[in-house]
């Protein structure tokens, strides 16, 4: 038994390491290109270690775009979107998963249906709505909707709420808890891993959202990095080095955030001891 266990562990390590190597290649590539002198960027097969490494692309980034300002905008947007999503989505998901009310299944189908139409055809009517609301010269279209929820996250959280045993809720009802208390005190803590996933996705989504800012942003003061990054690809000269350098600076915080958030992917304490 024990040797078999060790054997399986070794296989697991081997698989993880092989997979890890292939999955880290894109990142190494980005790092290496960011430090490459111009003439080595296009060498094929690629040269992995720049000779000599240069930091000039990082300087170029600051020459080309107001990087600090755009960074600030991006962080602000990410925080607002996370706050909005965490406010609206768990509530709606809980209503879909755990409560019974007239119209629930119908509204759930509608919720799913909102994801089924390619956004390209709803983009312009949506623009008209934001114009009517007077939001055009603001950042509001880029974060306010998250306070009203989005279908993907609601669906995801609903699925997680549904995996929680009903006995828990029934017991709490017996003790006189309100539905909101059950949601807040019992169900929500049990789906912290899913909440973490939603946080990561929202953060990433805001970080990489390009089309929204493209349509709505009308000044550097509201411009996020995802949009600014494209300035390195003008018609005649793509600044690949600078693009990579800026990408690297842009994704490092994402990686750090992920690294620290992933530790919430552990079994909820309450759940482990639940039925045992």
């Amino acid at each position: 038994m024990n040797t078999k266990r060790i054997f399986l562990r070794i296989i697991a390590y081997i698989l993880v390491i092989i997979g890890g190597i292939s999955f880290i290649i894109p990142f190494i590539w980005t790092v290496s290109t960011a430090f490459k002198p111009d003439e080595q960027i296009f060498l094929f097969p690629p040269k992995w270690i720049p000779e000599p490494p240069t930091i000039k692309h990082f300087k170029e980034v600051f020459e080309f775009i107001p990087f600090g300002l755009l960074y600030k905008n991006t962080v602000l947007l990410a925080l607002l979107n996370i706050a909005g999503t965490l406010f609206s989505c768990p509530l709606a998901a809980y209503a879909f998963a755990k409560l019974k009310w007239p119209g629930r299944d119908m509204l759930f189908i509608i919720t799913l249906a909102t994801m089924m139409l390619p956004p390209q055809v709803t983009m312009i009517p949506q623009f008209l709505i934001f114009r009517r609301l007077g939001w055009l010269n603001t950042m509001l279209p880029l974060w306010m909707p998250s306070f009203f929820g989005n279908a993907f996250n609601i669906f995801l959280l609903r699925q997680f709420f549904l995996t929680l045993p009903k006995e828990l809720d029934d017991a709490a009802r017996m003790d006189g808890c309100s539905f909101f208390d059950i949601f807040w005190r019992i169900n929500l803590p049990l789906i912290i891993p899913a909440i973490t996933a939603v946080t990561i996705f929202t953060f990433m989504g805001t970080w990489n959202n390009f089309i929204g800012p493209l349509i709505y942003v009308r000044s550097y003061n509201a411009m996020p990095l995802s949009l600014g990054l494209r300035m390195f690809q003008e018609a005649y000269s793509a600044e690949w080095g600078a693009l990579m350098a800026a990408s690297l600076m842009m994704i490092l915080p994402v990686i750090i955030v992920f690294f620290f958030l992933q530790k919430y992917f552990v079994q909820g304490i309450s759940l482990t001891g639940l039925k045992g």
Binding site: A92, T111, T122, M123, I129, F148
Partner: peptide
């Protein structure tokens, strides 16, 4: 239960009707 449901679904219901259903 029903009242709770309608209250907590309210933001999403508003979001749907303000931002999403019209364009669709």
């Amino acid at each position: 239960e029903i009242i709770t449901a309608y209250i907590i679904i309210l933001p999403w219901l508003l979001g749907l009707s303000i931002f999403i259903v019209g364009p669709i």
